[in-house]
Amino acid sequence: MSLEGAMARPTHHVPSDETLVSIDNLKVHFPIHKGILRRKAGAVRAVDGLTFVIRRGETLGLVGESGCGKSTTGRALLRLYRASDGKIVFDGTDIASLEGDALRRQRPRMQMIFQDPQASLNPRMTVGAIIAEPLVEHGVMNARDRKARVRELLDAVGLNPDYVNRYPHEFSGGQRQRIGIARALALDPEFIVCDEPIAALDVSIQAQVVNLLEDLQAKLGLTYLFISHDLSMVKHIADRVAVMYLGKIVELADVESLFADPKHPYTKALLSAVPVPDPKIEASRRRIILTGDIPDPANPPVGCRFCTRCPEVFDRCQVEEPDWREVQPGRFAACHRVEGGEASSAT
């Protein structure tokens, strides 16, 4: 799929109903070694049983506080971490169990954009070499075609193609992030995990990069998993949003419904913390402030994970873990307070 051919497409993307990525009970546990002989004494349950789908062409936002497991989820999806349990079905193939060359062949279809634009580019390689590395590794092009493709990619992300021989330290943060995006696009992927891609950028540059991502999605039909803790940005870019807490998803809904009518108490608290840039509204708004500390991910509370801080907690929460249920068509939540629906597996 060349970029010129894609130029003719409409600029507003329409997510399809087809499932691209289906995650079933994904777990990522990191072992803790203690004692003289360094025996395994427990595990940090960074991701503890996620079940959801990502549809082709959509942008799924993944939000939550620091340490809730968002980045780990994104990396586990790309097999940068080993999943301790569960299935990751990418376009029909379960990649959680793939190894070696079979896994390598799947890699061009799913790429990642990283958070820190400085650390994600090798300071000793030229920009051209960085973008060309995917092409070299899965080598189907000769050197001349590769050069042309690199220039094409630089152009597509809005950088001057003549900068091919420069080094990353000669660019600003926003430009480096564009280089990272160009590298992610090199192999024509279908799915891109954006791991907090704008967190390290200035606000004005954030806008440019987000717009770039949206345009690329429209032109190339990309699917995004947009991980962020910036709720206002997620509201702008995402079609559906998943909220994570301590390794589990607590709510999943389309973006308008989630922001207009959050069901889970954690989502309500999170949304109430987003400041509104209107002093009158802000002064009269009532904020939900959570009390208590975040529990240790190696030792999560019995029952619902959120029970130690939940403003709507009652006795059932501390005993029984709530099911992941489809409470309304297309809306999922895991809370005893939310009525309706059946417990669901990945649909």
Partner: peptide
């Protein structure tokens, strides 16, 4: 631990190349 090594892994670069292209020069 730096992210560009992770990026190389996500591209599918083989370990030998990661060492010679990314780790050694740094």
């Amino acid at each position: 631990e730096q992210e560009f090594v992770l990026a190389a892994k996500s591209i599918g670069t083989r370990e030998r190349r990661i060492i010679t292209r990314h780790i050694l020069p740094n």
